[in-house]
């Protein structure tokens, strides 16, 4: 993908509107990129939560401008404790994603920018935070791009600290932990069920070699297997070769996010529908 700035994306940069809104523990900071006035308008606003919003190599910034040039309104914003948003710096916790921040973003866009439909996109912790917005705002969300996030309460084999443990006692604890049935995170399962009950489409993206892929297999076995045909048609799983949960893997993730989000554009959907019927599930691996 060519990430170079174009006249169209530079035009969207010039139109960007910094904004602040109230989150659950303080002000959250973001940038709203209005859709290009000469583009066919999209029907939903894309939201990128970020830690921080500029992400690695500024891909979310570039993606926002590319999508806005296509006609999407886009918000990228800093989750609490990151970038310019209020909050203490704490390491991201898979047990406590910041779904409330994403909900605050949705409500702010609804109240101040007249946006009513939303598509959320996130990578890793940001994806888990985006998914969690379904607990409160499922009816307003049309889509979720969910890339390589944690699914289980603990990573298989224990936490990173345990991985370094060499003492006998730690080893025994670790073996016992492995022997227990893996438990899916409440922070994944509860909003996932809300997603399944909603009308939203979703794409779950992992790399075959990602450690988190092993976790996601459990979700496939436990949660996806329970879905009815209608829900399975909406919730896609895509497994890429290699590892995408890495610095090197990120461009492919963002590129896929852009291509998937573009499918929501009415013009794209119409031309796609004329070409061929949409495949409900693309599952690899």
């Amino acid at each position: 993908m060519n990430w170079r700035e174009t006249p169209a994306t530079l035009g969207r940069a010039r139109a960007e509107q910094p904004l602040m809104f109230t989150g659950p523990i303080g002000a959250l900071s973001g940038i709203f990129t209005p859709p290009a006035p000469d583009a066919s308008p999209a029907s939903a606003c894309v939201v990128f939560p970020g830690c921080p919003r500029s992400g690695l190599r500024r891909y979310p910034v570039l993606a926002a401008r590319i999508l806005a040039a296509d006609g999407f309104p886009v918000l990228r914003f800093d989750l609490r404790g990151h970038g310019e948003s209020a909050g203490e710096v704490v390491p991201p916790s898979r047990q406590e994603p910041f779904g409330e921040d994403v909900v605050a973003a949705i409500r702010h866009l609804r109240e101040t920018h007249g946006q009513n439909r939303f598509i959320l996109a996130g990578y890793c912790f940001d994806a888990l935070s985006a998914l969690n917005a379904f607990k409160d705002e499922a009816a307003a969300i049309d889509g979720l791009f969910f890339a390589v996030a944690a699914v289980l309460e603990q990573r298989p084999g224990g936490s990173p600290e345990d991985g370094h443990a060499r003492a006998g006692a730690s080893l025994v604890r670790s073996m016992l932990r492995r022997a227990r049935a893996p438990k899916i995170l409440d922070s994944f399962e509860i909003p996932f069920r809300a997603l399944a009950r909603s009308q939203a489409r979703a794409l779950f993206l992992y790399g075959e070699q990602d450690q988190l892929r092993a976790e996601f297999r459990i979700a496939e076995q436990v949660l996806f297997s329970e879905l009815d045909g209608e829900a399975r048609g909406r919730l896609q799983i895509e497994i890429r070769p290699g590892c995408i949960h890495s610095i090197e893997g990120q461009p492919a993730v963002i590129e896929r996010a852009i291509s998937w989000l573009r499918e929501f554009h009415p013009a794209r959907s119409e031309s796609g529908a004329r070409r061929e019927p949409r495949q409900p599930i693309s599952q690899g691996g």
Binding site: W3, R4, E5, A13, R14, S54, R58, V61
Partner: peptide
Amino acid sequence: RAHGDSAGDLE
């Protein structure tokens, strides 16, 4: 330029 939310290409 080419940093954060500003315009520009790092290239």
